[in-house]
Each structure stands twice: as structure tokens, then as C-alpha cells.
Amino acid sequence: MIPVRHASDGRALLVVSRNSVAFDILHAETVSRDWNSVLLSIQPAFGRNPVKARIGRKLAFPSAGFDVIYLSHVLEHHQDHQLVPALRDMHRLLKPGGVLRISTPDVERDARLYLAALERALQNPSEENQAAYLLAVTRSIDQCVRSEGGGEMKRVVEDRLWRDEDLDAAYGKALDYLVGRGESARGLPKRPRRDVRDLPFALWRGALALVSKGHPATTGEYDVSKLDEFVLNGALETAGFADIRRCEGHESRIRGWERWDFDRAADGTLLEPGLYLEALRP
């Protein structure tokens, strides 16, 4: 069992993510001060700083130990049959009355984005409208179909034919570090120093990347399910959650959320558009 760390106000907070850019680099300091952090991987994962775990496995924390859990952009990397078991495990980890927050891409939003971009490209196939169309298409499927890191998305984004508002509509500010836009113009901040005990994991990941040539199937960038409000509501109810509410971006029922708000970009907008939900463990 991994011991639970408590924040200064006595609460136990847990963030589960896959994207090491957000929680391993951008928020590394805040997270390591107040939160317990788990990085999920599709490969066998080990190491303690932050805790690594494999998708589909139970997290090795004691039951009913947490007041808050944030599943940040990880459910889309769970296959269909892994969704309810993963939520059941979160139910087990939460104290009664605890809050589960979820963020994930939203099929419904992506479908609307795609249809709107298609209409515009049909009416006026200007360079910008074509770029907006490609952004919408890559937003919908590229993370499921690519055969190399970044895929078509990276190509479209780096072609820079898009208008700022179209990139925002598709990806928010999440790709700013790729295009050197806004706060990320100077590149990513330096990765905090690794724990020497994580060296074996780093070596294993390096070997895997070498063998697979960085194929997305081994890096875990693939989205393997496409979720919307309806399927997530159903899965949360099945897993025993209650009082499920959709939140608009920065809203939260987590006390003091504005202090952290991991979903906020530097300019105050949403870092990544998508589906944000919260539910309570009764």
C-alpha cells in the first residue's frame, strides 16, 4: 500500500493523469505540495515519484482514503470494458461524501465542431477554412488512428494555416507548446529533477521507445474510447456514484479549487475543451 499524503488543511487529494506535461511539468510544484499524484501508463509501470500505475489495475492506495480524486484526461485511454471497473476503484478510494472530478474529450462537442467546420469548408474552401476543417477532423479521430507520435494533428498544427480561434475551438491552449504560442512561446519549463529511484522505470520506457520507434501504441497516446455525457453518466451510476453534474470549465464542487484549477490556461481560458463532470460518493 502506498501511504496517502495530506494537504495543509488535512484533506487527502489525488490526481490521476497520463499527460506528464501537465502534471509532471506545469503543475509539478503545486501537485507535489498538496496532492497525491498517479501517472497511468498502458505498459507495466512502476516507480514512486510520482506513483506510476498501469491502466486497468487497481491503485495501491488504502480504501476510503481520499476526499477528492481528479481523473484528468485518462478515461479516454481506457477500453470499453475497463471504464466501469476504473470508476469502481475510484469509488473504493473515496471517503463517503468525497468528490470525483473527471475531464475527457467530448464526442458530442467534437461532432458539432466537425459539422460546423465541414459546412464552412463547403461554402468557402479558403486556406483557413480548410485548416479549420482538418483541425476538427484530427480532433475527432487522430488520437485513435495515428501511426506515429503526433500524427496528422502535428502536421496540421505545424502548417500554421489556421486562425487562432479555430485552434482554440479544437484544442484550446493544449497545443500551445507545439506551436510556441502564448505563454509557451519559450518552450516548456524544465522538467523537475527525477528521483533516482525512478531510474529503472526511465530505462524501461527508453528501451520500449527504442524498440517500438515511438509508436503511439506503446507511448499510450491512443484514445481507445470515445465518451459523452450519457455513457459517462451511466458508467458513474453503475459504479455507485450519485449527484452527477456536468461543470462548465472552471466550476467545481471541490473546496478551494480555484487555488489549483489545473484546467486553466495562462490567459484564464480553459486549457483543453472537453467534457467536465463531477460526482459524489454517497
Binding site: V107, I141, S225, K226
Partner: peptide, 8 residues
């Protein structure tokens, strides 16, 4: 709409 893109 989407399953054939994501199925494993």
C-alpha cells in the same frame, strides 16, 4: 459513428 476508430 465512432467505434470503428477506437476499437482494439
Amino acid at each position: 459513428y465512432m467505434d470503428q476508430f477506437v476499437r482494439r
